[in-house]
């Protein structure tokens, strides 16, 4: 290896005269440090958030026995802190939203990307993106005035049920799912389609067997982002699910009874508790549980993406 002194004269002249090598290296170091700090800060902030949650919520786990936390009664005034009804409420609403939003979102994206004539796509796509911009509380309001009466008319005891919340959440997740899935489908190389069509596959066979599997990681990201938006949503859900912290009867009918979600509980009760009280730390404990659930959900999805598509084997 030659040092700078040994380098040809012509090469040395190319160096800007005002910036000798040492100074340039110094500049590089600063830029590198700034970039590294930015990268680390995300991790640091997440760690701090978790530590804060833990500090505020830990007393709950110490003072309330785990058996009570797993109980079915949430009566904070009587010191009954059973989280199960809230957990079930959140699960019912989220699962319902996923079951509605994922098939609807994927089929809409496939239609937009593969079947719709260009003029229709140019109308639909912006409209769907506008749907993403509607404030969630407006959707909640819509659920309250328009959807709830319909569900009550359909035979439920009240219109404010888990199902109502699930529909509202599904519509909140839909624009994200559609838009990102459509992008993922568009990114599938044209050669895949040609290859399948040239083998005598129909358009639908090509989409089902080739295009969708090829776009899989993009679709998983679309669902994750869409559902992620739905899980964390609070106000709209609070408005339309009825907010009854009880475990609904088992079975399909569970969706047509009022429930209360974990997020709604925190939002509704945080303003009224005494800081530092047991109730206060239980609310933070709910936050911890939520955090763990979304964390588990995200890591599962990342593993799924990293599964096959990232692995490259064999010869090059």
């Amino acid at each position: 290896m030659s040092t700078l002194d040994e380098a040809p004269a012509a090469w040395q002249e190319q160096q800007p005269s005002g910036a000798p090598a040492a100074k340039r290296n110094w500049r590089e170091t600063i830029i590198e440090t700034v970039i590294r700090l930015c990268g680390i800060s995300a991790v640091v902030i997440i760690t701090l958030i978790f530590l804060f949650l833990l500090k505020e919520g830990a007393p709950a786990f110490m003072q309330v026995p785990i058996r009570d936390l797993l109980g079915v009664r949430w009566y904070p005034i009587e010191d009954m802190f059973g989280l199960l009804p809230l957990l079930v409420g959140s699960l019912l609403v989220t699962i319902g939203a996923v079951v509605i939003a994922v098939p609807l979102g994927l089929t809409t994206a496939v239609y937009l990307g593969e079947f719709a004539p260009p003029w229709l796509r140019e109308i639909l796509k912006p409209v769907i993106e506008v749907l993403a911009g509607i404030p969630s509380i407006v959707l909640g309001f819509l659920g309250w005035v328009a959807l709830a009466p319909l569900i009550q008319a359909a035979g439920a005891a009240t219109g404010l049920t888990a199902f109502t919340g699930a529909i509202i959440l599904a519509y909140m997740a839909l624009p994200t799912i559609i838009s990102i899935t459509e992008d993922a489908l568009y990114a599938v190389p044209k050669e895949y389609r040609d290859g399948a069509l040239a083998l005598g596959a129909t358009q639908w066979q090509t989409i089902w067997r080739v295009v969708l599997p090829a776009a899989r990681s993009g679709i998983v990201i679309a669902v994750m982002l869409g559902v992620g938006r739905a899980i964390g949503e609070t106000m709209a859900v609070m408005l339309v699910t009825g907010n009854a912290a009880n475990i609904p009867a088992f079975g399909l009918g569970a969706w047509f009874q009022p429930v209360r979600t974990m997020t709604a509980t925190i939002a509704a009760e945080m303003g009224e508790v005494a800081q530092g009280s047991l109730h206060y730390s239980v609310l933070f404990a709910i936050g911890i549980v939520l955090f763990l659930i979304t964390f588990a959900f995200n890591s599962l999805a990342t593993r799924f993406i990293g599964g096959r598509s990232r692995r490259r084997g064999g010869q090059i």
């Binding site: 040609d194 290859g195 596959a201 067997r209 599997p213």
Partner: peptide, 24 residues
């Protein structure tokens, strides 16, 4: 049938690529 300038394996195993046309 057609073979392209850029080889276009479809996502999946070698066997799946071969069997694909027949299954379709």
């Amino acid at each position: 049938g057609m073979v392209f300038a850029v080889p276009t394996p479809l996502p999946g195993s070698i066997y799946a690529n071969l069997a694909y046309g027949l299954e379709m």
